[in-house]
């Protein structure tokens, strides 16, 4: 699409109105059965993530075990949805997760800044896909976006999508750098039109990350895209969601914005590392009736 066509997509978002809607989601009270179901759903939606310079194969293998066995002391727990690693660790993860159903996602395209050439970004993607990644989490070029070069952003996403082949493409907007909800909305629309399978808030390296107003704005963009095209796009808030309560409120938001179809890890993910243990603590509390301590839950 041309830059002018992409400019024409801009739609206004009223930030205060979004915050009021979010505040209302936050008044939803999730208790008893609904809480247990919600917590299990949340656990099953987690992309367990390690994206550090000091990542090693050992670290990745340990995390993969946790992904498949979140807390064996509790019966009937689902696995998490996926593990999310750098491209160089994809092979390790694929091997460790074989047969478990847990997906392997790789960040690519010069994550997290995205400041590199198209050539290198494509190569980065190809490395991940060739190593067996089920999903690719790319970053958009925020500099180009903020300078108004929307067609560059669009073309780049489309190119990466092509390079992904069968792998599903998650497009990270890095909303903390986009500043306004109007920009979040515009970037979401560009990403979806360019072929994103998922849109994702953040790299986790920039704060603020997945705030509820940002996530709601993106969910509403997904809804409009679905209304318009009939095509479902997934949503992944990432960064800053470490508590069960916040995860449940995110799920409330999904349920009441997009409906039942999105309440599965095929269409909704949490990018998080410490959320899993908090969810497990809450599940244990529901099962045993006692408040829990972190020493009783494995850190991987």
């Amino acid at each position: 699409m041309t830059n002018n066509q992409l400019i024409a997509l801009k739609r206004p978002i009223d930030q205060v109105g979004v915050e009021e809607r979010v505040a209302r989601f936050q008044t939803r009270s999730i208790k008893t059965e609904a809480k247990i179901q919600g917590l299990k759903m949340a656990l099953n939606m987690i992309d367990l993530t390690t994206l550090e310079g000091k990542d090693t194969a050992g670290k990745v293998r340990q995390m993969c075990y946790k992904a498949m066995h979140p807390h064996d002391a509790l019966p009937d727990l689902p696995t998490v949805a996926a593990v999310c690693v750098y491209p160089t660790h994809v092979a390790t993860a694929v091997d460790a997760l074989k047969g478990s159903g847990v997906k392997v996602a790789a960040v690519a395209t010069a994550f997290p800044s995205g400041n590199s050439s198209r050539k290198i970004k494509l190569a980065d993607t190809k490395i991940a896909v060739d190593a067996g990644a089920d999903e690719v989490d790319m970053v958009i070029s925020r500099g180009e976006f903020l300078s108004g070069n929307y067609s560059f952003v669009f073309d780049e996403i489309a190119a990466i999508k092509e390079a992904c082949g069968k792998a599903r493409l998650k497009v990270i907007l890095e909303t903390g750098e986009l500043s306004t909800l109007d920009n979040v909305r515009h970037a979401s629309d560009i990403a979806m039109l360019a072929g994103a399978d998922f849109i994702k808030t953040s790299t986790g390296k920039i704060s603020p990350a997945a705030t509820m107003p940002v996530t709601l704005t993106m969910l509403e963009a997904i809804r409009d895209f679905y209304y318009e095209t009939g095509k479902m796009v997934g949503m992944k808030p990432a960064g800053g969601i470490s508590k069960s309560k916040l995860a449940l409120h995110n799920l409330v938001m999904v349920k009441e914005t997009l409906g039942d179809a999105w309440l599965s890890n095929e269409w909704f993910r949490f990018g998080a590392s410490s959320l899993a243990n908090d969810v497990l603590m809450q599940l244990a509390k529901q099962a045993e009736g006692r408040y829990q301590g972190l020493d009783y839950f494995s850190k991987d």
Partner: peptide
């Protein structure tokens, strides 16, 4: 012979 009209509008607060 005056009415009082009160107008509300949201104020965006970024970050």
């Amino acid at each position: 012979t005056q009415e009082v009209k009160t107008t509300w509008h949201p104020i965006e607060n970024i970050a």
